[in-house]
Design a protein around this nucleic acid. Structure first.
Lengths: 107, 107
DNA sequence: CCTACTGATAACCGATCGGTTATCGGTTCG
DNA sequence: CGAACCGATAACCGATCGGTTATCAGTAGG
């Protein structure tokens, strides 16, 4: 039902996009060029994926000269963890803790 | 990259489908008719959604006379919880516990 | 300045998706 | 049996998606 939830699930549904996000989580901040080099698709495709991830709140970008650096916004995964927790029907307090932690990590 | 992961994320990306799964998690086993009554789409649409959820391992069905009863397969969410945990980079042992528990819940 | 580089946008294309209506197979009941 | 019911399948349609190539704006450097 939640529109925010929707964009989150939708953004992570595509394997190429998920791979980009995983890379940003693993290796930290990356330029568009660096991401393109390993994405297996063209630079405009990568830019579009990054735009979608950004709309979902999963990444944020920082301009520096003519390069754009993107980094993962891990806190955006909190609703996903929360949803999973609610579906399993257990761990509620446990996942709430996680959500709080992730929110605090975002400053 | 993982094909199983892919079907899981993909299956949960659609809001109608996710609502059906949520209902099965909340209220337990339901017939196709009962699910259709609240899905807001036609019966064939519901059947297709159930087919996709089934392929992703998220639901299982049980035949009884001329009715088909579907129920959520909560254990199928374990890879999702695991992935989230790996992306956050913490909680690894914690999520492994969850995965184990969910797997055991599946008998 | 002019050229080269980086990344975003535009325009377009085929494939897939989610939905519909129509229909069919299987089951129950009068 | 025959009629009614339940759910799956088929055939189709418009919209959206993920990809491409071409191009544009902004920045850096000779």
């Amino acid at each position: 039902m939640q529109h925010g939830h929707d964009m989150l699930f939708r953004a992570l549904a595509d394997p190429t996009r998920r791979a980009i996000f995983e890379r940003l989580c693993r290796d930290g901040e990356q330029t568009v060029g660096a991401l393109t080099a390993q994405a297996g698709v063209s630079q405009p495709a990568v830019s579009k994926h990054l735009g979608i991830l950004k709309l979902a709140g999963l990444v944020r970008d920082r301009q520096s000269g003519r390069q754009t650096h993107y980094h993962a916004e891990r806190a955006a995964l909190a609703p996903l963890a929360d949803w999973t927790g609610r579906m399993t029907g257990f761990w509620e307090s446990r996942f709430d803790e996680l959500e709080d932690l992730l929110t605090r990590m975002d400053q």
